[in-house]
């Protein structure tokens, strides 16, 4: 299992439109991917679970990847979330 922390940069946070794109990216990997903020966590491959976290700009989150392609998944998703623009 690998993990890393990052801060959400895009102004609208991970609400539906950016969130939907992040979930689509997560689904490209076979490993389990969890996103965590404080004590709450969600499966990053589920849009509804992600929406339930209510993630906004400037919040710090942790990404945890566990499975055969965990290294690639973590690197890709960290970069993808940090480069969201809207």
């Amino acid at each position: 299992m690998v993990k890393d922390t990052l801060v959400i940069q895009n102004p609208t946070g991970l609400h539906t439109r950016p969130a939907k794109r992040v979930v689509a990216e997560a689904k490209r990997f076979v490993c389990d991917i969890t996103i965590r903020r404080d004590e709450k966590e969600a499966n990053l491959k589920s849009l509804l679970k992600l929406m339930k976290l209510g993630l906004s700009q400037h919040q710090s989150i942790e990404l945890l990847c566990d499975g055969p392609d965990e290294q690639e998944a973590l690197a890709h998703l960290k970069s993808y979330i940090q480069h969201l623009e809207d």
């Binding site: 991970l14 609400h15 539906t16 509804l48 929406m51 339930k52 209510g54 993630l55 906004s56």
Partner: peptide, 18 residues
Amino acid sequence: SVKEHNEEAVCQIADLCD
């Protein structure tokens, strides 16, 4: 506001939809 949108409204709707 974005805060109400993301941190309240969207989470509550997702709760029901889940």
